[in-house]
Design a protein around this nucleic acid. Structure first.
Lengths: 159, 159
DNA sequence: GATAGATCCTTGAACTTTCAACCTTCTTCG
DNA sequence: CGAAGAAGGTTGAAAGTTCAAGGATCTATC
């Protein structure tokens, strides 16, 4: 193997700032949701995606694709959320391989209850610290990255 | 509680792009390091931070602060890395409360061996997708965020 | 020079995530 | 039709993380 192109000092600084900041940001979301709703952020995302779907329902693979979760991870998470009575699963009559997950009323109540605190956390930890210009740049940069990292993935809401 | 300021459509898009992209990015690093070095990314960071320290040594709390890990998480991780013979821990003679972690020769070999692939992954997944302007913006944005989220933390290398 | 409190780190249990193996159902095609 | 393979999900075990509690050691203060 040939000598790789190491990161120069500025790249190094940028990379670490990104790493640490996104880690801190994610941890802060996790703590807020664990405190207010008793679930980790990834679980909240599952509930939120279901809450936006028509009939509050999606197949497991749709959830997995939209939320970028592995099938296994989603399966375990769904089992936990089902235990809590926040999600219901049933086989799809039109394709027996699929399982349709539905957000229950109780599940919707959890999302609705946790959403304000969650939004406040996202604002407080991210948007409030940046200028409007930076927010625009952030959107463009991560839009590009998302395309780059997951070219076939569902993009975030209508661009 | 008063009605929160919800995210508008553009903020929503930006937020999700950031969320998904950083998740994909982190997963790709994790997989690469798990494959090439048999450890998750967080463990690699511990080894990397030690490799840069003088005497390849730091106290546990220094590592925790630099790598932004909880004491508990670090403690468990260090135990695993010690099992592998990549890190050694001993009590600090000058302050009996502290534990000094040292990167062993074997540990250094692991970092050295994994580094090229890791850098290539970071370049491929992040820097290569962005313009020089965007890279500069990224650095500024996350530098700001890091200050915002962890005002007292060690900043990334000399600013 | 004691003792209260702070600092530093570890531990065990509960929970989450990953990985590989597996089961079903659907589709394709000879 | 019937077998082979693809698609959709699940499972159990191993590994990683969090949380609350606790054991040492040091510092400050009386």
């Amino acid at each position: 193997m040939t000598e790789p192109r190491w990161l120069n000092e500025e790249e190094q600084r940028t990379w670490r700032a990104f790493l640490w900041a996104s880690q801190l940001l994610h941890d802060s979301l996790d703590r807020q949701l664990q405190r207010d709703a008793g679930i980790p952020h990834a679980y909240y995302v599952i509930l939120a995606m279901l809450s936006e779907a028509s009939d509050r329902s999606l197949t497991m693979s749709q959830v997995a694709e939209i939320a970028r979760l592995s099938p296994s991870r989603l399966s375990h998470a769904a089992a936990r959320l089902e235990d809590k009575g926040w999600v219901a699963r049933r086989r799809n009559p039109e394709d027996g391989r699929q399982i349709i997950a539905t957000l229950t009323d109780a599940g919707l109540a959890v999302v609705t209850g946790a959403a304000p605190g969650h939004v406040a956390q996202v604002r407080g930890a991210l948007f409030d610290a940046l200028t409007p210009d930076q927010i625009r740049q952030l959107g463009e940069i991560f839009g590009t990255l998302l395309e780059h990292l997951d070219p076939d993935g569902e993009l975030t809401p209508e661009p």
